[in-house]
C-alpha cells in the first residue's frame, strides 16, 4: 500500500500551515461549537461562517474550493436527517406520494433540515482543512499540550504509526483469500454467507494474533532503544504572537457570527 494512503496532509507553505497546531485545534473546536450554537434558520450567520471557511481555504493556499470538493463524504448520513422534513408543528408545504406512502414536508421541517445540513457541512469542511494543513503527529502533540492524557495520545500515536503496517497485513490476507478463491465466470463459487462470515472471522483472528505478537516485538525493540513511556518530538511547539493573534481574531469573528445569528 502506498505510504500516503492514510495521510491527509498536503505539504505546502502557507500561513495556515505555519500556525501552531494548538491554535488550529482550538479554532476547529470553537468553529464546530459555534455551528452547534447557531439557532435554526440563522441563514445570515451560516453564510458568514461559510465566508470564514472560504477565507481559511484561501489562507491555506490549497485553493478556494479545496474543502468543498472533499466534503461530500458526510452526505450519506443526511438520509438520517431527512425525516426532520416532516416536522408535525408547521405549515404543510406539499403532499408527496412515495410507494403508496403519503409524506407531508412542513416549513419548520424544511428550516430544521436545512440548518442541520449546513451545520454538518461546515463542520466537516473545517475538519478536512485541519488535517490538510497539520501533520498528524503535530496534531497529536497539540492534544497533549491541551491536557489530553498522555496515555491516550500515545495510544493514538501508535495507532497512526502502525495503521499502515497492519493495513498492509489486511491487504495480504485479502489477497491470499482472493488467490485461493478461483471461480468460473457465471458459476456460483464459495459457500453460504455464514461460511464467508466465518472465513472473515478467521482472518480477523489471524490479524489479531499477528498484531498482538507484533506489539510484543515492537515493545522489546523500543525498550532496547530507551523507551520510557513517552514519545518525543523534535518540534519546539512554542506559541508566538502571530498564533495568539490568530486565535483571538477567530474567536472574535465567531462571536460576531453568534451575535448576527441571535439578532437576525
Amino acid at each position: 500500500m502506498h505510504v500516503n494512503a492514510f495521510d491527509r496532509y498536503y505539504a505546502t507553505e502557507s500561513p495556515l500551515h505555519r500556525l501552531d497546531a494548538r491554535v488550529k485545534v482550538l479554532g476547529l473546536i470553537a468553529f464546530v461549537l459555534s455551528n452547534a450554537l447557531l439557532p435554526d434558520g440563522a441563514w445570515a450567520a451560516f453564510g458568514l461562517t461559510w465566508l470564514l471557511l472560504l477565507l481559511a481555504n484561501l489562507a491555506s493556499h490549497l485553493g478556494p474550493d479545496f474543502t468543498f470538493r472533499r466534503s461530500f463524504i458526510a452526505l450519506p448520513f443526511m438520509l438520517v436527517a431527512l425525516s426532520a422534513l416532516f416536522a408535525p408543528n408547521g405549515q404543510p408545504l406539499a403532499e408527496w406520494n412515495l410507494l403508496g406512502l403519503s409524506l407531508t414536508p412542513t416549513d419548520t421541517g424544511l428550516i430544521r433540515f436545512g440548518s442541520i445540513l449546513l451545520r454538518t457541512w461546515l463542520s466537516v469542511q473545517a475538519g478536512i482543512l485541519l488535517v490538510a494543513v497539520t501533520p498528524f503527529p503535530d496534531l497529536i502533540h497539540a492534544f497533549e499540550h491541551l491536557r489530553v492524557p498522555a496515555i491516550l495520545t500515545t495510544i493514538i500515536a501508535f495507532l497512526y504509526r502502525y495503521l499502515f503496517v497492519l493495513s498492509d497485513e489486511v491487504l495480504r490476507l485479502l489477497r491470499a483469500r482472493d488467490s485461493r478463491s478461483a471461480a468460473i465466470p457465471g458459476q456460483k463459487s464459495g459457500r453460504s454467507v455464514f461460511w464467508r462470515a466465518q472465513i472473515t472471522g478467521h482472518m480477523a483472528g489471524q490479524l489479531f494474533l499477528r498484531s498482538y505478537e507484533r506489539s510484543d516485538r515492537i515493545y522489546h525493540a523500543m525498550l532496547a532503544r530507551g523507551y520510557t513511556g513517552h514519545i518525543r518530538t523534535l518540534r519546539a511547539h512554542v506559541m508566538r504572537r502571530r498564533d495568539w493573534l490568530s486565535l483571538v481574531l477567530l474567536i472574535a469573528a465567531l462571536l460576531v457570527v453568534q451575535l448576527i445569528g441571535r439578532i437576525g
Binding site: I151, T154, I155, I156, A157, F158, L159, Y160, R161, Y162, L163, V165, L166, S167, E169, V170, A204, L207, F208, S211, Y212, R214, S215, D216, I218, Y219, M222, G229
Partner: peptide, 15 residues
C-alpha cells in the same frame, strides 16, 4: 500496555 493498546487500536482499524 500502551504500545499493546495502540497496536490493538490499529488492529481494530485495519480489521
Amino acid at each position: 500496555q500502551v504500545p499493546l493498546m495502540g497496536i490493538m487500536a490499529a488492529f481494530i482499524f485495519a480489521a
